[in-house]
Design a protein around this nucleic acid. Structure first.
Lengths: 147, 147
DNA sequence: TATTGTTATACTCTATAACTATA
DNA sequence: TATAGTTATAGAGTATAACAATA
């Protein structure tokens, strides 16, 4: 890569992100999942009854873009929308049995594959990498909220 | 973010990448640049006479997608395509004077803005972060080449 | 035959505005 | 009036296949 461009974190991130994304996608597509449907499924499994708006916030996806993702998962029979009695505008999301099974399979595949990609880093390094990324994210969010 | 999703580097990366990307784009758009045209311009400035195919490799962009990016920069008068006499299939790329000026302005803006986003990290941390990302990238490329 | 640049095309992800039904 | 979900739409980025000109 170009010497000057390489000094920008953004461009390093882009390359590594694209690498991991392409790699992960290769694992997910045969299961009928994409990046967005995969991450959505995991969150619904881990937080049964979550509403679409909260889900969109969690995943940092616009609620308008959330709709098609949830439609996809629902049409394939992996999750269900259920009306919330206390607020009839909202939908609570629940995983089905087959969705649960698929999720565990996909998570296993994904983490196995990601760890293969990360064998070049020690556990300590990986932890430090994760922590730094989290720090960037939270301070950026804080700065955004300040404005 | 979801506890289980957060353990995947891919999803941490995605969030930080999107943050930085949106931030950078806000700086570039008023100058008439996007992420792709910006990075392309920088590489051409730093490597005058580079051919399109080499540029595409450097930027990890498909050569078919490179065409529109170069068209854009050329139409705005910031770079020029010049036929290579030794290989009449190829174009060598050169920056114009105004392209050079724009490039320096954009780089200054971008690095200033990125460093604002990274104040939460020490120089040593940032260096380590860059180094780890580079390590992931190079080992992944090596593994790809192996297959 | 292989490569450089190109066109056409499709799909994923992201972003915004406007709508509906409820609150 | 505000919010939850939805529709429509546009743009950025990425990916593949096929082509013309040249090697």
């Amino acid at each position: 890569m170009d010497e000057r461009l390489r000094r920008f974190l953004g461009f390093r991130l882009k390359r590594v992100f694209n690498l991991i994304r392409a790699d992960l996608l290769e694992q997910l597509v045969p299961l009928g999942l994409h990046i967005t449907t995969f991450s959505t499924l995991v969150v619904i499994v881990d937080h049964p009854g979550l509403r679409q708006s909260a889900l969109a916030d969690t995943l940092d996806i616009k609620s308008s873009n959330m709709v098609a993702i949830i439609d996809d998962l629902e049409q394939r029979g992996w999750i269900e929308r259920q009306r919330v009695p206390e607020d009839r505008r909202a939908f609570a999301l629940y995983v089905t049995e087959s969705g649960q099974r698929l999720c565990e399979k996909a998570v296993a595949l994904a983490s196995e594959h990601e760890s293969k990609l990360l064998t070049c880093l020690s556990d300590k390094e990986l932890e430090s990498l994760m922590h730094m990324l989290e720090k960037i994210e939270t301070t950026a969010e804080y700065n955004d909220a300040e404005q």
